[in-house]
Amino acid sequence: MSEPILSLEAVETDIAQYHILKGVSLSVPRGQVTMLLGRNGVGKTTTMRTIMGLLRNKAGQIRFDGAEISGELASSRCRAGIGFVPEDMGIFSALTVEENMILAAVSGAPDRARLDWLFTVFPPLKTFWKAPAGTLSGGQKQMLSIARAMIEDRKLYLIDEPTKGLAPAIVSTMVGALRELKRQGASILMVEQNFAVARALGDHCVVMDDGRATWSGAMADLATDHALQERLMGLSMEAG
């Protein structure tokens, strides 16, 4: 087994007076899609923001690509090869789609071949290339948010609920794009409440509860064990 691209060991994070992460330990295998699952409010988004450096862990270790990064700024983690798609999309509404994409290409001007590929998986981006991002529909804004992370070949992609609130047709487009990214061998950690999407994309799975990672294993094992789903999350994936 190769070293995981990302590992957390006993990570604790507070937000104001609230103790959110209470010793999270997990690993993300290199070249696989790891789904981060659990009920609402158990710490999944806080985990993602802590990995990205938008929140600072007060204890524990975060190792990325063999290096300890707990003390690094978010900008340094980005330059080191982590792409982040936040739950709130994080696009610049007053800037055009083109300007949003240029800003996301931290290594320089966007690669033309990479951009052409993104236009094939997210056609509306080409259509609205010169339009202000704020004029896009919700689904189109989510496409832009994901495309910003994908504009360069990242070592790790952190993607927080990419299909939340989207129509089925847009969800299908998202899944197709992420499946293509997976086919290229990308390492992905993804929060997703849509279990059908989790089943379709996930190789590995980590389940969280009350600020801790309580189970990890193959996504296929969790997807086929309804009793385990009920025990870990209080619901069955059959509902997804």
Rank of each mutant, 00 (worst) to 15 (best):
residue 137 S to W: 14
residue 108 G to R: 04
residue 98 E to M: 10
residue 120 T to L: 03
residue 133 A to R: 07
residue 116 D to S: 12
residue 119 F to R: 05
residue 100 N to Q: 08
residue 121 V to Q: 06
residue 123 P to G: 05
residue 97 V to N: 08
residue 130 K to G: 13
residue 109 A to H: 11
residue 138 G to F: 13
residue 120 T to I: 01
residue 114 R to K: 09
residue 114 R to H: 11
residue 114 R to E: 12
residue 104 A to T: 06
residue 114 R to W: 12
residue 114 R to A: 08
residue 127 T to Q: 15
residue 107 S to P: 02
residue 108 G to C: 07
residue 110 P to T: 04
residue 92 F to W: 12
residue 116 D to F: 01
residue 106 V to S: 02
residue 100 N to M: 04
residue 119 F to A: 05
residue 104 A to S: 12
residue 133 A to K: 05
residue 113 A to M: 04
residue 113 A to F: 00
residue 96 T to L: 03
residue 104 A to E: 05
residue 109 A to S: 11
residue 135 T to W: 13
residue 135 T to C: 06
residue 110 P to F: 08
residue 136 L to R: 12
residue 108 G to I: 04
residue 95 L to E: 13
residue 130 K to F: 02
residue 121 V to K: 02
residue 111 D to L: 00
residue 134 G to C: 06
residue 112 R to Y: 09
residue 106 V to H: 13
residue 116 D to L: 05
residue 136 L to E: 13
residue 130 K to I: 00
residue 134 G to K: 02
residue 97 V to L: 09
residue 111 D to M: 00
residue 125 L to K: 03
residue 134 G to V: 01
residue 129 W to N: 00
residue 114 R to D: 10
residue 108 G to H: 11
residue 94 A to N: 15
residue 110 P to R: 04
residue 119 F to I: 00
residue 117 W to T: 01
residue 92 F to G: 03
residue 128 F to N: 10
residue 105 A to S: 15
residue 105 A to T: 10
residue 104 A to Q: 07
residue 114 R to F: 12
residue 132 P to Y: 08
residue 113 A to W: 00
residue 111 D to F: 01
residue 99 E to P: 05
residue 101 M to P: 11
residue 94 A to E: 15
residue 126 K to M: 03
residue 132 P to H: 06
residue 121 V to Y: 10
residue 100 N to E: 09
residue 115 L to W: 10
residue 97 V to G: 05
residue 130 K to A: 15
residue 98 E to W: 10
residue 130 K to V: 01
residue 131 A to K: 15
residue 94 A to V: 11
residue 100 N to K: 08
residue 116 D to W: 04
residue 111 D to Y: 06
residue 93 S to E: 14
residue 108 G to D: 08
residue 135 T to R: 09
residue 134 G to S: 07
residue 125 L to H: 09
residue 127 T to F: 10
residue 95 L to W: 12
residue 100 N to L: 02
residue 131 A to H: 15
residue 112 R to L: 11
residue 125 L to Y: 12
residue 93 S to Y: 13
residue 122 F to K: 03
residue 103 L to P: 06
residue 107 S to T: 13
residue 113 A to G: 04
residue 115 L to H: 07
residue 137 S to Y: 14
residue 133 A to H: 10
residue 128 F to A: 07
residue 133 A to E: 09
residue 116 D to G: 02
residue 103 L to V: 11
residue 96 T to V: 06
residue 94 A to D: 15
residue 93 S to R: 15
